[in-house]
Amino acid sequence: MGEWHSLQLKVLYEVLGWVAFVAWSISFYPQVILNFRRKSVVGLNFDFVLLNLTKHSSYLIYNAVLFFSTAVQAQYRHKYGSNEMIPVAANDVAFSSHAVLLTAFTLFQIFIYERKNQRFSKIAIGIVCIIWFSAAVCVFVGIHRHSWLWLINVFNTIQVTMTVIKYVPQAVMNFRLKSTDGFSIGNILLDLLGGVTNYGQMAMQSIDQKSWVNFYGNIGKTLLSLVSIFFDIIFIIQHYVLYPASKKKEKLPIQAPSSETS
C-alpha cells in the first residue's frame, strides 16, 4: 500500500482537496437560491440539470465503491502496482454525495417553479435512458466476471461523457438568447476554483509518489477538471464579455415619461 513520503505534501493534498470540495459544493447553491428568489427556472436549461444528475450519480458510484471496497482496491493495485495509492479521497466521496442531493433538488425546483414553455428535450431524455440501460447491462457482465474495477470504470467513463455533454445545452441556450439571465455565474466561478484546486490536489500526490499513475489511473477525475475548466471559461466569456447585463440594458429603448391630463 502506498504511503506519503512528505508530510508537507500530504497536508497540502488534504487542504487542496477540501478546498475543491467546498468550492464545488457551494457552487450548487447560487443557482438554487436564484431559482428560489425568482420563483422561476426560466433561463436555466433543463437538459443541463437532467444530464448533470446522471453525471454526478455515476461519479458517486465510482468514488464510493473505489474508496470503500477492498476488493476493488485490490484489483486497482494489481493493475497499477501494489505501492500505488488509491486515487480517490474522502473529499471526492463527500462532494459526489452532496452533488447528487443538490442536483436532485434543483430538478425538483424545475417542477414547482415557473418555467414558461421550457421543457426537457427528447434527446436528453433519450441519452439518459440509453446511459442507464447500458450501465445495467455492464453491471450484469461485471458481476458475472467479478470485474469490479472494470465495472466502476464504466461509471467513471459515463461521468466523463456526461461532463462533456451536459454543458452544451446551456452554452447553446445562452448563445441563442444572447443572454445568461437565469443562469447563475456564481456557480461557474466556484466550479472553476474547484477544478483548479482539484488538479492541484492530484499534482501533490503525483509529486510525492514520483508517479503520474494518479492522473491516468483516475482518468475520469482528470478529465472532469479539464472539461469543467474549459466550459467554465466559455460561460465566463459569455456572461462578462459577450452578453453582459449592462450591454443588454443599453439596448433597451428609452421611454419618455407619460403625461397625464386631469
Rank of each mutant, 00 (worst) to 15 (best):
P244I: 03
A90L: 13
A256S: 15
M202S: 08
I26S: 15
D232R: 03
T161E: 01
I185F: 10
G220Q: 00
I229Q: 04
D232T: 00
M1R: 07
E260D: 08
H5R: 14
Q31C: 13
T180S: 12
V141S: 06
F21P: 03
K55P: 06
I125A: 15
V88H: 07
P87H: 00
I236Q: 01
K116L: 12
E250P: 00
L223F: 14
L242C: 12
D191C: 06
T180C: 14
V241H: 13
F120R: 07
T180A: 01
V41W: 04
C129Y: 03
F48D: 08
T180I: 03
I219P: 05
L193F: 02
K39P: 11
S246H: 10
V88S: 00
I158Q: 03
L151W: 05
V160L: 14
D92K: 01
C138W: 08
S121G: 15
V65M: 05
F111M: 05
R176W: 10
Y113M: 11
N117F: 10
I143W: 11
V196R: 06
Y59L: 07
N198T: 12
Q31P: 13
P87M: 01
M162W: 00
I123T: 13
F21I: 04
S57K: 03
S121A: 04
P87K: 04
I229T: 06
K166E: 07
C138G: 04
L12Q: 07
R77C: 08
Q73G: 10
F175M: 05
I33R: 14
A104F: 15
I86F: 08
T157W: 14
S96Q: 13
F235Y: 13
T222N: 00
F175Q: 04
Q255Y: 14
K166Q: 14
T261P: 00
D191R: 08
D232G: 14
L60A: 15
G43I: 11
L53Y: 06
A89D: 10
V213M: 12
L7M: 09
I152H: 06
S184K: 09
L107V: 05
I185G: 05
D232E: 03
Y167P: 12
V168H: 02
F155A: 06
L12W: 13
